[in-house]
Simulated assay, not measured.
Amino acid sequence: MASDLEQLCSYVNEKIGYIKKILSIRNLGQDPALKTTLSKIRDEIITVNELLNQFELEIQYQEQTNDSLKELCVSLEEDFKDVEHLREHVPSHLPPVTVAQSSADKPNLDPKEPVEVEEPVLAKRPPKEQRVIKEMPFITIEEFKGVPAYMKSRLTYCQINDVIKEINKAVVSKYKIIHQSKASMSAAKRNLYQRFINEETKDTKGRFFIVEADIKDFTALKADKRFHVILNILRHCQRLSEVRGGGLTRYVIT
């Protein structure tokens, strides 16, 4: 890893050295014969700029990974404390396990002694099957690199994944209401539920989708130009598709 970074730094320094040498003769650029030199300057600057962009993406990815590892460490420490607490507080005498026996297994019972009759244990209802809400996977570094430059403009890898996180929040919030029992809904949730049902079409049946109103109701995002640029990138990365109709654009999770 260290040797790779040293080679990379050496490469960048070499490029910067070339640029300094070329800039030292920039005054000669008035000569039409030296236009090729100016063209080389431009190419070298573009190369360095692209390299710095890659550095920035890699640093953001490493920072995100580092944050995730820190959260994992905190969680593991809490689990370890819980286990230690349980280990230190195991009761010295545990209650004995009683085995129910039928009267046929007890031939020597004294008829004068009262017989303890165990109450039947009611079978527990099986838990209701939890409905899985489909969420949009985050894009990878490789996918981000494959997005055309004109499409992503100055957007970063982390900015796009932050929007995915908010979209997933809207999807989960919406479909929790749809899956909720109507009897337990407030008046506001009933109105939302009715809107959700009215927005369904035959093309969205059985699929998970949101509209701009859901973004407004459940997230802090703004449906501005930047937001729609990110939606174009998500369509390019096959994270969502659009279903239009009735004056609405439905963003379907793919």
Rank of each mutant, 00 (worst) to 15 (best):
R207P: 00
K202P: 00
N161K: 08
V132T: 09
E88D: 11
K176V: 06
N161R: 07
T98H: 15
Q194M: 02
R190Q: 13
Q180K: 15
E84S: 01
H89I: 06
N161L: 09
D203A: 15
V115K: 05
S153R: 02
E119S: 04
S75Y: 11
N161D: 03
I197K: 09
K189H: 12
M136F: 04
S153W: 06
K124L: 04
E118F: 13
D110Y: 06
Y193M: 10
P111D: 04
L122R: 13
G206T: 12
N191A: 14
F80E: 08
E135F: 03
I177C: 02
D82S: 13
M136D: 03
T204V: 08
C158L: 14
A188E: 05
K134F: 05
I141L: 12
K202I: 07
S181E: 11
K81Q: 14
R195T: 07
K128N: 10
E166H: 06
E166W: 00
I167H: 04
L192Q: 13
D105H: 09
K174V: 01
V99P: 00
E199G: 03
I177H: 02
F196T: 01
T140R: 10
S92Y: 09
K165W: 06
P120Q: 12
A183W: 04
P96G: 04
Y157E: 02
R154A: 12
A123L: 12
Q159E: 15
V99T: 15
I139S: 01
K128H: 06
F144N: 03
A100D: 04
N161G: 05
G206V: 08
V117M: 03
V172N: 02
H179T: 13
P107H: 04
P111H: 10
K174D: 02
V132H: 09
V115F: 10
V99K: 11
V117N: 09
A188I: 12
M136H: 03
P120C: 08
D82V: 15
E143Q: 13
V171R: 01
A104L: 14
V121E: 06
P126F: 08
N191H: 14
K152G: 02
E113M: 14
D105V: 08
Y193E: 04
P111E: 03
F144E: 00
K169V: 15
R154C: 02
I160C: 15
G206F: 08
V115A: 10
K106T: 15
D79K: 14
N198V: 08
V121M: 13
S173P: 02
I160R: 01
P120S: 11
V83M: 04
E84Y: 05
V83A: 15
V74T: 13
S186I: 15
Q130E: 13
